[in-house]
Amino acid sequence: MTGTGLRAKHQRLVLLGVALAVLLVAGLLAAWALRNQASYFYVPSEILAKPPEADRSVRLGGMVVRGSMKDAPDGVTVNFLVTDGKQQVPVRFAGIRPALFVEGSGVVAEGHWTDGLFTADNLLAKHDEKYTPREMQGMTTDQAHKAIAETK
């Protein structure tokens, strides 16, 4: 009786320890996420208003301005403008671009802000909440909805 009682108590203690450790990890993760007011990236007007130090690694997010994407002659480097609707900033990136990195779509660039140019080490494609069937490509969402309504 006492033997199993002790073992059960021991087991309970171990499990409580595991629970506390798990809580601690969860708390640390939350704190990690909440740094910089938990925002994952700067938008152009923020980076222009409060430029970060040149040696600090930061993220810049926004929309790729249509018609701004220019390939450099070396075939690897690309220059483009990122906008948040208020301000726009130039970005340079050399490397493999994600498949969904296109003009007029969202992007998050990781890199450094130096003298008015954002040099990206890595690009992430950010898509919006819109889902449109491929057959309706080229239409705006409103047009697509009209097309759906008409075929009903």
């Binding site: 075939g75 690897v76 493999i96 671009r97 498949a99 990195f101």
Partner: peptide, 8 residues
């Protein structure tokens, strides 16, 4: 240079 992955 664009990444090409097979979505399937």
């Amino acid at each position: 240079m664009r990444e090409a992955l097979d979505p399937w």
